[in-house]
Amino acid sequence: MSRFIFTFAVYFLIWMGFTTSFDPQELIAGAVLSLIITFFSYKSFTDLGLSFLNPKRLFNIVKYMFVFIIALFKANFDVAKRVINPKLPINPGIVAYKTKLKSDTAKVFLANSITLTPGTLTVDVIGDTLYIHWIDVITKDPQKIYSEIGEQFEVILKEIFE
């Protein structure tokens, strides 16, 4: 039941964003549509339901967004530096990265974050191993790969999803 309410609230918020109006007709249409879609999809939409909204999780979500935005800016200046340099300083390769996260949602977020952070691109996820294309392979030691690529995200994602 709490999963149902959470899913409905998310869909309704998205509807409000689409229409950006408080006209009663719009609100009723949105509520009916959200209810129908929620009925079909709430089982696969979320595992946590309303417990997703406790203060500790919300705090971690805000923290995650800050870490993510800083990493996104770093990544872009890194790309810009490499693209503008006439010699193209790259040393690419694919490395295996063992994640300690269990939940699938957390893995999706981890993979997406890794794609948008400096010099890395997730190619595939098999079980608990992420295969990552790295534009500048500086180490092949698994422990160092872990701390270099994704540790800062994993610590926070563990708090949010597990």
Partner: peptide, 13 residues
């Protein structure tokens, strides 16, 4: 793969 790296990050931001 390198094209995807440059393309995804820079065009997303």
């Amino acid at each position: 793969y390198n094209r995807l790296q440059a393309g995804t990050k820079a065009t997303t931001l």
